[in-house]
Design a protein around this nucleic acid. Structure first.
Lengths: 229, 229
DNA sequence: CGGAGCATTGAATTGCATCAAGGCACGTGG
DNA sequence: CCACGTGCCTTGATGCAATTCAATGCTCCG
């Protein structure tokens, strides 16, 4: 899979795809299953005592940091196969919330720590996943820093294209499970500016808004030229 | 050490401080020493075949991503104890350059991989370091996304305060080894805007410019109120 | 009992006024 | 000489307010 082809679903990022069947068994062995039937349910809050990591089986999750007043920065939109639960000094550094009905695996830290300490091969996969997340965070850094809102929105759309659960290559339609405000909090702008950027991209013929939560991509190549790779 | 006290030098981020003497010995065993006598020397370039990670013994390094035209985003300023060399598909994703004369340890990937695969304890420290870098990247994300230039500069100054090599707690003076342009490329703004922000902070009585490369912090607490924690 | 039509509510969208940041040109100082 | 610093003008993004749209639940009727 070429990293520069955004239409290729990005399975490298899925931790479970990296694991051998035996590793998966040990991994699942320490996990408990959590079901979140609704959208918008909190998994944990910033500052809360961290006792587990979470793995997404189905659904989507956002992790965010809340500043004092209304200021919220969404750090990541997470898809099936992603791992989350970053902490510092035993406390979660983000707030995690479901964006859609979700099925999560809960991995208690003590059991996970024991597992990784006695299985260096499995741990290497966690290290690879961490490296992947670091690259993703750095890419987001560049998107926020170096691009106007129109390009940021283009980069965001192409990010969704990478995932099976938000893109149908046959129809060219991306699903946007999150609200305009969520997108704005992710791209460090406002809901209005996101809408204005979408309007612009539509006028340019690059996309077509089918509904607020479904957008058809008409010119993938021209979108890619706008985005960060 | 409290994480919210920016005057406390942040040794948690130093990989070598995490290691036991035996681990350090094995770590150094696979390494070769590299000396960069000058400022501005490249360690590796974006896209180059990745065959090693690097550990900073002395000096400072910046990692950056170059967009097509002049656009450059500095992803991180790295200090002694930091590790760098992030890659994807065998290729470095950043360009690394010395900011000051530097002494680096070069860790060949194949040897490092063998070492980590047979020493889960040592690998756990690498995982902890990766988590640390991920947090740092997320914090930078928030700085870029949610703050005006004045606050970004304040956050940047407080970041330098965390490190022994750029801050003297006795005099309250931070050293800025990098140019205004470098700072601008790190904070996703322009050299002029960085200067204007410094001018403003000085007029407000928060800082005092001693020279372009040395700034005395007069009101640490008020600076902290401007910055991201 | 099921379904069409209507009401309600929150989200999405648009226009307009304002402002902080960027770009350029020039001056300054180590 | 190169990097730093400053004034002036331009521009793109934001905030506010008004309007449209869409999804949901409800009622009423067949």
């Amino acid at each position: 899979m070429s990293p520069s082809d955004p239409t290729a679903a990005n399975d490298d990022s899925r931790l479970d795809r990296l694991l051998t069947p035996e590793e998966q068994a040990r991994f699942v062995g320490i996990a408990s299953t959590l079901t979140f039937p609704d959208r918008g349910q909190p998994v944990y809050h910033e500052g809360q005592l961290a006792d587990a990591l979470y793995f997404i089986e189905r659904g989507m999750v956002e992790t965010s940091c809340q500043a004092e007043e209304g200021e919220r920065q969404i750090v990541a939109f997470l898809h099936p196969g992603d791992l989350f639960g970053l902490f510092e000094n035993q406390r979660y550094v983000n707030t995690a919330r479901t964006l859609a009905p979700a099925l999560l695996l809960r991995l208690p830290l003590d059991a996970l720590h024991r597992l990784l300490a006695e299985d260096a091969q499995l741990q290497l996969h966690f290290l690879a996943k961490a490296a992947h997340d670091l690259r993703r965070s750095q890419r987001q850094l560049i998107v926020l820093g170096r691009q106007d809102v129109r390009r940021r929105v283009a980069s965001f759309l192409l990010e969704l294209v990478q995932h099976h659960d938000t893109y149908d290559p046959d129809t060219g339609i991306v699903a946007l499970p999150m609200s305009r405000t969520d997108i704005a909090d992710y791209l460090a702008t406002t809901a209005e500016s996101v809408v204005r950027a979408l309007t612009l991209l539509e006028k340019e013929g690059l996309i077509q808004r089918l509904s607020p939560k479904a957008i058809r991509l008409l010119e993938l190549k021209r979108l890619m030229r706008l985005a960060v790779f």
